[in-house]
C-alpha cells in the first residue's frame, strides 16, 4: 500500500459482502433445524454475498482513498537519564551475571558426580548385602510398585527392567543437579566448596528425609542414612570441583542475541551504516 500523494492513503473499501455471505451461510445451516425454505433463502443470500465479494477482489482489490489529517504525534524525550546498575562498570542494560560457567561444565560435573555416587552406592550394596544390584533395585522401586513387597533376596537379584529404570532415574537426577550446580555456584562466590559439598547435599538429604516414605517407601524402610549422606556429599564435592575448575566465560553484553547466533547480521549492518539515530 504505497501512497500516491502524501495527503491520501489507500485503504480497503468498506463492503457488505462478507456480512451477507456470513448471514447466508448461517441461514443455510439454520435451515437444517428449522425448515428447508430457510436454507434456500440462506443459500441465495450466500451466493449473492460470494459474487459481490469476488467482484470486489477480481480483477483488482477495491480500495478507497482516505484523506490524511495532518497531525504531529510528538514523542517527548525523557528529562532524566536512565538509572544505572552498580556492577563493576557502568551499565544500564545488562544480561546478568557478567561472567558464567559454560553450561557444559554443569553437564560434566553432573556426570562425574553421578559416576562417583553410583560407584559408592554399588559398593555399599556389595559390602552390606553381598550384591551390587541391591541398591539399584531399591532406587528403581521409586517407580515400581511391584517391588513394595519384595524380599531382600529379590532385591539382590539382577533384573534388567529395574536396572534400566534405576539408570534413567539416576542419570536424569545427576544431570539436572549438575546443571544446577553449574548455574548456581557463581552465585555463591565466597565458599563454593562449602556450598557444593556440604550445604546442597545436606539440604537435598533433608528434603528426601521428609518425603521419602511417599517418593520411595521401599528405600525408606531399608535406607542406611550415613551411607546415603556420604554418597550425596561425594556427588556434591566431585560435581562442585569439576564445575569450579572450569574457566568462566564473559556473557556477551553488547551484542544482540540475533547477531550472536548469526541470524540477523544483514539488518544490523544496515542499522550501523545509518548510525544509531
Amino acid at each position: 500500500m504505497v501512497e500516491n500523494s502524501q495527503n491520501e492513503v489507500r485503504l480497503p473499501a468498506p463492503s457488505a459482502a462478507p456480512m451477507l455471505f456470513a448471514l447466508g451461510i448461517t441461514l443455510a445451516f439454520a435451515g437444517v433445524v428449522t425448515s428447508v425454505s430457510v436454507s434456500i433463502v440462506g443459500i441465495v443470500i450466500a451466493i449473492a454475498g460470494a459474487v459481490s465479494w469476488f467482484s470486489e477482489v477480481l480483477p483488482t482489490e477495491h480500495e478507497e482513498m482516505v484523506t490524511v489529517t495532518p497531525e504531529s504525534v510528538v514523542v517527548v524525550q525523557a528529562k532524566l537519564p536512565v538509572a544505572y546498575l552498580e556492577v563493576g562498570e557502568q551499565l544500564n542494560r545488562a544480561v546478568l551475571p557478567l561472567e558464567i560457567f559454560p553450561y557444559t561444565a554443569g553437564i560434566k560435573g553432573g556426570i562425574a558426580g553421578g559416576v562417583v555416587m553410583a560407584v559408592l552406592a554399588v559398593v555399599q550394596g556389595i559390602i552390606f548385602h553381598g550384591s551390587p544390584w541391591y541398591t539399584i533395585n531399591i532406587l528403581a522401586a521409586t517407580a515400581m510398585p511391584s517391588l513394595a513387597q519384595a524380599t531382600t533376596a529379590t532385591l539382590s537379584a539382577f533384573n534388567p527392567e529395574t536396572l534400566a529404570i534405576a539408570l534413567l532415574i539416576h542419570a536424569t537426577a545427576s544431570l539436572l543437579v549438575g546443571l544446577l550446580y553449574g548455574v548456581m555456584l557463581p552465585m555463591f562466590p565466597r565458599y563454593p566448596a562449602f556450598f557444593a559439598a556440604i550445604v546442597a547435599p545436606l539440604l537435598w538429604t533433608g528434603l528426601l528425609w521428609a518425603t521419602l516414605d511417599v517418593i520411595n517407601p521401599v528405600l525408606d524402610l531399608r535406607i542406611e542414612w550415613r551411607w546415603f549422606i556420604l554418597c550425596q556429599i561425594a556427588f556434591g564435592a566431585v560435581a562442585g570441583y569439576v564445575v569450579d575448575r572450569t574457566e568462566k566465560v564473559r556473557t556477551l553484553q553488547h551484542l544482540p542475541f540475533a547477531v550472536r547466533t548469526g541470524i540477523e547480521a544483514r539488518y544490523r549492518a544496515n542499522d550501523d551504516q545509518k548510525g544509531d539515530a
Binding site: 504505497v2 502524501q6 504525534v73 510528538v74 514523542v75
Partner: peptide, 12 residues
C-alpha cells in the same frame, strides 16, 4: 513515526 522519511525509500 515522526522520524520516518515521508516517501518510500530503498530500504523500505
Amino acid at each position: 513515526m515522526a522520524a520516518a522519511p515521508a516517501v518510500a525509500n530503498q530500504s523500505q
